[in-house]
C-alpha cells in the first residue's frame, strides 16, 4: 500500500503516522522558526523576559468521563505543555465550537470545570471565542486553548543534553486517562474501573527547580503514551533507553482492562503525568520532592539511558527477556483528548 492520499484516523494517533504527517506537511512550511524542534511549547524570541507559547485542541468523546471532563482536560493539557517546557503557566485562551442542540447544562458543567481547573493552576482565561455550527457538523463541543507562560530560570531542556547513565522518571501510574475514556465510550461495564489522571504537573516542575540544571528533558505522555515520548527522545540520537517492566507503574484498574483488551499501557495516554530524564545524581532528590506532592505520590524511576542500542527503547521483561518498546502506530484510541 502506498502513502494514503487522505487523512486517516491513525494520522491523529500520536504515533508514526502523526509524526510523518507533521514531518512532511508542517515542518517544511513552518519549521524555520521556534517550531523547528517541535516542542510542546515554543520559547518565543525577542520578547522581554522570555515567553513560552503553546496551543492544543480537545475533541474527547464522551465529553464527561470518570475523573474529569473536556473542560478540565482543556486546561490541564495546555498548562502541562507549558510546564514541561520549563515555564510557569500564566494565561490561556478559550475557543469553543459548539454544536446546535448542545444542552446548556453540559456547557455550564464544562465551563465550571474550566474555571475550577484554571483557578487550581493559577492561570487566567484572558481571551476567547465561541462558534456554533449546525447540528451534525460537530459532535457536541470542541475546545481549543492556547497558553502563555514565563520561563522558570535554571531550566535548559533539550533531549540533546541527555547522556548514558541518566535516569528516566515517571510521576505516577501510566495510561489511566486513555483506559478511563475507552471504558466510558464503549460503555464497558467494569466494577471500580479506571479513572482518568487528568490533572496538572506544573507543581512538579516547580518542585524540581532546585535541581533544574540536572533536568535534561520533560514531557507529558499524552497521545501515543510513554512509548511515543521515549521513542521521540531516543529516536535518531546516539543513546538508547532501557526500561524495567517490573518498575513500570500501572494502576490495577487500568491494567485489568488493558490486559483484557490486549492493549499495551505504554501506548495509552495519561493527562496528568510527567516523564523526565534527569542526571543520575539528582534523581533521588527529585523523586522525593515529587512524592511530597499529591500529584507526584506515585513517582518512580522506570529506567535509564544506555549507550546502546542507539535510538531504541528496550525493555527487560518480567521474566528476564528483552524486547523493543516500539512507537505506537496510530489508531488505537481516537478522540481520547
Amino acid at each position: 500500500m502506498t502513502t494514503p492520499d487522505r487523512i486517516l484516523l491513525a494520522h491523529g494517533g500520536g504515533g508514526r503516522l502523526t509524526a510523518a504527517l507533521i514531518a512532511d506537511e508542517i515542518v517544511p512550511r513552518f519549521g524555520a522558526g521556534p517550531l523547528a524542534s517541535l516542542p510542546d511549547a515554543a520559547r518565543l524570541p525577542g520578547m522581554a523576559g522570555g515567553l513560552v507559547f503553546t496551543t492544543d485542541s480537545y475533541v474527547v468523546q464522551p465529553a464527561v468521563f470518570p475523573g474529569g471532563d473536556i473542560g478540565a482536560l482543556a486546561v490541564h493539557g495546555t498548562v502541562n505543555d507549558l510546564a514541561v517546557s520549563g515555564a510557569e503557566p500564566r494565561w490561556i485562551s478559550l475557543a469553543m465550537i459548539l454544536e446546535e442542540g448542545l444542552p446548556l447544562a453540559t456547557l455550564r458543567r464544562v465551563l465550571d470545570s474550566i474555571r475550577a481547573a484554571a483557578d487550581a493552576c493559577g492561570v487566567a482565561v484572558a481571551t476567547g471565542d465561541t462558534k456554533v455550527v449546525p447540528h451534525g457538523q460537530c459532535d457536541g463541543l470542541y475546545i481549543n486553548t492556547a497558553g502563555l507562560g514565563e520561563p522558570i530560570p535554571g531550566y535548559r531542556l533539550s533531549a540533546d543534553a541527555i547522556r548514558p547513565g541518566d535516569a528516566v522518571l515517571a510521576s505516577g501510574t501510566l495510561g489511566d486517562h486513555g483506559m478511563a475514556v475507552l471504558c466510558a465510550r464503549e460503555r464497558l461495564q467494569v466494577a471500580s474501573g479506571p479513572v482518568s489522571d487528568t490533572g496538572t504537573i506544573h507543581r512538579l516542575v516547580r518542585a524540581a527547580t532546585p535541581w533544574a540544571a540536572s533536568v535534561r528533558f520533560m514531557r507529558d505522555p499524552t497521545r501515543g503514551g510513554a512509548a511515543a515520548v521515549l521513542n521521540e527522545i531516543a529516536g535518531g540520537r546516539p543513546f538508547g533507553i532501557a526500561l524495567r517492566e517490573d518498575a513500570l507503574p500501572f494502576a490495577p484498574a487500568a491494567r485489568s482492562v488493558a490486559e483484557t483488551l490486549g492493549i499495551d499501557l505504554l501506548h495509552v495516554p495519561s493527562e496528568g503525568r510527567m516523564l523526565a530524564v534527569v542526571a543520575p545524581d539528582a534523581a533521588d532528590a527529585i523523586l522525593a520532592a515529587w512524592r511530597a506532592l499529591p500529584e507526584g505520590a506515585g513517582s518512580t524511576r522506570i529506567g535509564a539511558v544506555t549507550a546502546g542500542p542507539a535510538g531504541a527503547v528496550v525493555m527487560e521483561t518480567l521474566i528476564g527477556g528483552r524486547r523493543l518498546v516500539d512507537m505506537p502506530l496510530g489508531e488505537l484510541l481516537p478522540r481520547i483528548c
Binding site: I319, G321, R323
Partner: peptide, 12 residues
C-alpha cells in the same frame, strides 16, 4: 507469537 515477542522469550 505476540506473547513470545512481548516477553522476549526467544532470547531465553
Amino acid at each position: 507469537t505476540m506473547a513470545i515477542g512481548r516477553y522476549g522469550i526467544r532470547g531465553l
